[in-house]
Design a protein around this nucleic acid. Structure first.
Lengths: 207, 207
DNA sequence: CTCTTTGTATCACGCTCGTGATAAATTGTT
DNA sequence: AACAATTTATCACGAGCGTGATACAAAGAG
């Protein structure tokens, strides 16, 4: 028999509300009261599911990272072995995978927005340090893995330093996300995706 | 006869203190009281030079942008006509110019740090919108100008879309700055500069 | 010396915040 | 019906914030 309120579902609802508040008002103005209002809950009720503000924040950020990781792994698995795909399609597959980190639609835009605010706070808030560091190295591991696969399958121009190329591609993704979220009138989603495509083509042979 | 206190100098001292607080504690925790303490002033005294918090913030951010613009213009002027320099040195000159936007030493690190926090706040604080937008387009104008000069002097590989390349290089600079400030243990200043160098070399002919 | 201007220092108000304590209502079980 | 557990709702406290008002000190001008 289902209980009238599923605690886990409630927690997810609250986290969703938190994300909406962060996207709309910024992490700075994301107070417990604001989240409770957005979730249609009383603040006392909210505190029944999250013992403290830090507890809520930790859970929210971990949830976002978990969701992102899941979707990335789905992409990786869907691609499978890169050399099974025809040469010219490999770049498109990789671009689609990495585009999961770019704000190309509303879902990803919200995600990157929250991620940026969260990372900004992590610089001076020790409570977020670990998660932020984990996210940074995680992104690099993914990018490096992608580049290695491209290299092994002979899709990359020779003589590349993978350490540098990893940082370069990671920085490109971070920078594109930053600008597309903060200045969508200056950098559109299309241009964003196009820049990534051009970069990958630049890394590869001339076909 | 010099007045005992130079108001303009005082304002600059206060702004310097503000920058130190932002770098140390983050923009979120940069209250009037914290800045006054850091500057060794009473809060009432601080408010004699800045009528409101917004007044102080505006002045501080505008000061930073002005200082950065000045230094960039000095670089541009020092370079002069790009075609007067030997071919292989052009990329180094351009790299040095753009490296003014990277946190390669303490001064630039502080600047980028403040800039990132400020831009993060600008997303949801209308008072900062104009300055942030101005900074974003200013960076792009500079990058585009640099790329155009490189192209005109025949230093660039042919067939490049300058719109895309401008966004790509801008994103690279933003992303490198972001990672170098937030995760200096992951991305060192050297690697940062190296990534920029590699990118410019990639854009140019193979010599 | 007196007066005006400039700079320095306090106080108090209203606001928002996280949080602890506690009550009240609701639900599931016996 | 009675009880226990869960969920919802209030209240109050102390802290930090920006800001207006105001007092006090110092300095240059007449």
């Amino acid at each position: 028999m289902p209980k009238l309120v599923d605690p886990e579902a409630r927690r997810r609802e609250v986290v969703d509300a938190l994300f909406r508040v962060v996207v709309r008002d910024g992490l700075q103005r994301t107070s417990l009261r604001a989240v409770a209002d957005e979730a249609g809950l009383n603040i006392g009720s909210l505190r029944h599911y999250f013992s403290s503000q830090q507890d809520l924040m930790d859970f929210a950020m971990q949830s976002m990272l978990d969701g992102l990781t899941d979707r990335l792994l789905q992409h990786v698995e869907r691609i499978g072995d890169l050399s099974r795909h025809p040469h010219p399609e490999r770049l498109r597959l990789v671009a689609d995978l990495l585009a999961e980190l770019l704000p190309l639609d509303e879902r990803r835009r919200a995600e990157v927005t929250v991620f940026l605010d969260f990372n900004a706070a992590a610089r001076t808030n020790p409570a977020f340090r670990d998660l932020s560091h984990q996210a940074a190295t995680g992104t690099r591991r993914l990018v490096r893995r992608v580049l290695t696969r491209l290299d092994e399958s002979g899709t990359l121009r020779p003589g590349r330093d993978l350490d540098i190329e990893t940082e370069r591609l990671t920085a490109l993704l971070d920078g594109l996300g930053l600008s597309a979220v903060r200045h969508p009138d200056v950098l559109s989603a299309q241009t964003c995706a196009e820049a990534l495509r051009v970069h990958l083509e630049d890394l590869s042979d001339g076909r």
